[in-house]
Amino acid sequence: MRPLNETDIRASFVNCSKGEAKRLAVPRDLAERPWPDLDFLGWRDPGALDRAYLVAPWPATGGGEDGVVGVTLRLAAQQRGFLHRNMCSLCLTTHGGNGVSLMTGRRAGEAGRRGDSVGAYICTDLACSLYVRGRKTPDTGTRLKETLTVEEQVERTRDKLAGFLTRLL
């Protein structure tokens, strides 16, 4: 993923108002992010722990230059025990406890204004790209042993992310 700045990020959001995009908390450590290892930029709102944000590369329509698309997400309330395990629907990493959360996003456009939303179980820390590449290991979970190469796993994660974003758009 190409490095993004705050202006790029705020302009990318499609399922919230411009005012909401202007007020949301953007990470302060953008320069330190491992951009070559990221398939998307994801972060939690430190002031509202039930909110998360995801910005991903997105193909342009009409033959223009490819850009990025951003979505706001809400995390479902979590009350799972330490022994409970869930799997991320994007990167297929399993986590114990609250390491995977149901994240829902309001659909873009008229559907979202009617209250329609789409959800997926995603790593709570939104570090899917790093788990797939072996740059980070889950605290209380595991990565399944797979016969796919890392490149194939990365492609699968990107495809699953694109499917989720397509449903939101």
Results as ranks from 00 to 15, higher is better:
residue 3 P to W: 08
residue 7 T to R: 07
residue 7 T to W: 01
residue 9 I to N: 09
residue 10 R to P: 09
residue 11 A to K: 15
residue 11 A to R: 15
residue 15 N to A: 12
residue 17 S to K: 06
residue 22 K to R: 13
residue 23 R to Y: 04
residue 23 R to C: 06
residue 32 E to L: 12
residue 32 E to G: 09
residue 36 P to C: 02
residue 38 L to F: 12
residue 38 L to I: 12
residue 42 G to Y: 04
residue 42 G to N: 04
residue 44 R to Y: 08
residue 44 R to F: 05
residue 45 D to A: 04
residue 45 D to V: 00
residue 47 G to I: 05
residue 48 A to T: 13
residue 50 D to F: 08
residue 51 R to P: 04
residue 53 Y to D: 00
residue 55 V to H: 05
residue 59 P to G: 05
residue 59 P to C: 02
residue 61 T to N: 07
residue 69 V to L: 15
residue 74 R to D: 05
residue 75 L to A: 15
residue 78 Q to G: 05
residue 80 R to D: 03
residue 82 F to C: 06
residue 84 H to F: 13
residue 85 R to H: 09
residue 90 L to Y: 02
residue 94 T to M: 14
residue 95 H to P: 00
residue 98 N to A: 09
residue 100 V to G: 00
residue 101 S to A: 15
residue 101 S to E: 09
residue 101 S to G: 14
residue 104 T to C: 11
residue 107 R to T: 08
residue 110 E to P: 01
residue 110 E to H: 12
residue 111 A to W: 02
residue 115 G to W: 10
residue 116 D to W: 14
residue 117 S to K: 13
residue 120 A to M: 10
residue 120 A to I: 02
residue 123 C to W: 01
residue 124 T to C: 01
residue 127 A to Q: 09
residue 127 A to W: 04
residue 132 V to N: 04
residue 134 G to Q: 11
residue 134 G to F: 13
residue 135 R to C: 06
residue 135 R to V: 03
residue 136 K to S: 10
residue 139 D to T: 08
residue 140 T to A: 15
residue 141 G to K: 04
residue 146 E to F: 04
residue 147 T to H: 05
residue 148 L to S: 14
residue 151 E to V: 11
residue 151 E to S: 15
residue 155 E to H: 11
residue 156 R to N: 03
residue 157 T to K: 09
residue 159 D to N: 14
residue 160 K to V: 11
residue 165 L to C: 05
residue 166 T to M: 06
residue 166 T to I: 07
residue 167 R to D: 15
